[in-house]
Nucleic acid binder design. Structure first.
Lengths: 341, 341
DNA sequence: CGCTGTCATGTTAGCGCTAACATCCTTTTT
DNA sequence: AAAAAGGATGTTAGCGCTAACATGACAGCG
């Protein structure tokens, strides 16, 4: 009757637990917990002994249990609209290296430019008790706003500036569009076509177009728009050049929504034997290395992508530690005057 | 005494819980749990009522608690050595889209080519009760092997083929190196320099060099090697071309470890006015779009990156469902004969 | 009509950890 | 020397959910 083989239910994995470590080390469970999570609250000698025991038993803390008990995880939810775009990759890198150094783990979600998908991701991520949430962009579904407004952890909206839910780090896309349009006018171009891809989804490209159009309107010039089915790739850029050459034969410049399209067009122009910018000027946006290595060098606008990620992460970390941080930060942009305009 | 206002401790967030939903819906907690996780085990009518209640209360399931209770999470740990490399990004994309469709969430870790960092990541990820683990590569520290061998969930090692811990999807890098070396010889090149970056870390580039060298040895030719401090970028490729031109003035071909380096060199050759392949032939590895859009088109080897990710994910999913899957799969590669060789 | 089987739902007991409070020393203060 | 403060460790009670077992209702059937 007193055999330890309980006749009843039992579960759990075979893994070593914290209390097994505690027993083996001759201390209580909470002391082991503190040795790992708050070393300064444990006597150095005791701690050394506990760590040795952990090593000996090959104990791996169950972070799920820890998160449940403490109602918080060291997860940071990061939601981006695309992984095909180098821009988001670099922002993620900036976030990742900064968070990782502080022991936070990124939970990456990809919406593919679908706001409902974003809502679904937010719901899942809230369920994981994340410490903070980062999204690319200020646009969300109403359901998503509802979820986020009831949430008590910090939220960082990145990439663009505007009415944010909480923290905001980004740049002014309308101003960037204006900047490039002014540059192209200054170089003497008058028939400027704006080419973007999936612009109802990549609405930041739309913001840049709005800035572009504002400047051209001011000069009494038309601002024709070509909206492609693809977001951005060398192929799509090459195809777009062909389309512009037939649909707007008098065009003297193309303002592309991103460097992938612009570089694709530029390389294609070379293959066609067109002079850039003599026959047609080409401008991009992002400042990817690619555009800076082709001949002629691409005129584009550089955004500080990796820095934006790092800054956003630093702000969030400071905020999580209780520091007061500015709610909005403009990281700016820089016109890279290449030889393609 | 019987007042419900307990004079004692209390915690927990203000969030709606599953048992609150159960009370509101007039069922037990487990029925709500089943309505969400095993709908077929609940009467359709009951389920509808429960879902309506969930909607009304704005209940968001606590996935941490669920994972603790069930000793498993729908996390897939994915460990890659770098996020700067388009290759890994595409593999991750393939993994992500496939896992996401089945409701799994990727936990991404970046080792920066450091095996100790990998061990640390594995330790953390095991603590999250992941359903499976994916690593890029077959090389691990002893400590890491120890952790993984005690683990009872599936492990997928990707990118290369060889002695794997569990499942393995990849390609034969030695064969790829041989393939390109043969191609360069066939095109009449004899003084072929192999250029890689951080090859002690990017050991797969080293495997390709081994194949390359094997072929050149067979012809009695030297196989000079240049190992750069940078993994791969257009800048580094351009700089590498300069170095080769001075250190190996008689070189007639450069076999680069990746397309970034190769394309950087190719574009730089254009700026220098060098004919490719007349003055010097250039070859890469990966088959990135970039190399296919420059003139001359880059000779390279294409690996099915996104497909590799999808396939690895599908295999793991099948394995998780109890299906028997092949433990090793060679996804092959393809020589893209461009105009740069 | 009682037996077995199936379906729908409920009860119980944790999963492994940590917050909150408690205890027991040792040190510092007045 | 008594009181207050601080340091190290322990006890208790969950965090919110689900596995395992239990129950009850009803159908089919010889």
């Amino acid at each position: 009757m007193s055999k330890s083989s309980s006749p009843r239910r039992r579960r759990g994995s075979a893994r070593t637990t914290l209390s097994q470590v505690a027993d083996a080390a001759g201390v209580s469970a909470i002391t082991v917990s503190r040795a790992l999570n708050a070393p300064e609250r444990v006597n150095a000698e005791t701690r050394r002994h506990i760590l040795a025991t952990i090593e000996r038993l090959g104990y791996v803390p169950n972070l799920v249990a820890g998160s449940l008990a403490s109602a918080s995880s060291r997860f940071i939810a990061v939601i981006v609209p695309s992984l095909s775009n180098a821009v988001f990759i670099e922002v993620i890198q900036g976030l990742q290296e900064t968070f990782e150094a502080e022991g936070y783990q990124i939970l990456l979600g990809n919406t593919d430019y679908d706001l409902d998908r974003e809502t679904q991701l937010v719901r899942t991520f809230l369920g994981w008790s994340c410490s903070a949430l980062v999204t690319a962009g200020l646009r969300h579904s109403d359901a998503c706003r509802g979820l986020l407004s009831q949430w008590d952890k910090p939220i960082m909206e990145m990439m663009e500036l505007g009415e944010a839910l909480d923290l905001n780090v980004g740049l002014d896309h309308v101003a960037a569009g204006r900047c490039m349009a002014r540059h192209l006018l200054q170089r003497g171009h008058r028939q400027i076509v704006y080419v973007g891809g999936r612009m109802s989804e990549d609405y930041r490209a739309g913001l840049r177009y709005a800035g572009h159009r504002e400047i051209l309107d001011g000069e009494g010039l038309a601002a024709p728009l070509l909206d492609l089915a693809h977001l951005g790739s060398l192929e799509a850029g090459a195809a777009a050049l062909d389309r512009v050459l037939t649909s707007h034969p008098r065009a003297d410049a193309i303002h592309f929504a991103n460097d992938d399209l612009a570089t694709g067009a530029l390389l294609h122009a070379q293959r066609l034997g067109l002079g850039v910018p003599k026959d047609i000027a080409i401008a991009g946006f992002n400042g990817l290395p690619l555009g800076q290595h082709v001949t002629p060098r691409l005129t584009t606008i550089r955004s500080p992508r990796q820095y934006m990620g790092q800054l956003a992460a630093k702000r969030l970390l400071a905020h999580l530690q209780g520091d007061v941080v500015a709610r909005r930060q403009d990281v700016g942009f820089e016109l890279l005057t290449g030889d393609s305009s």
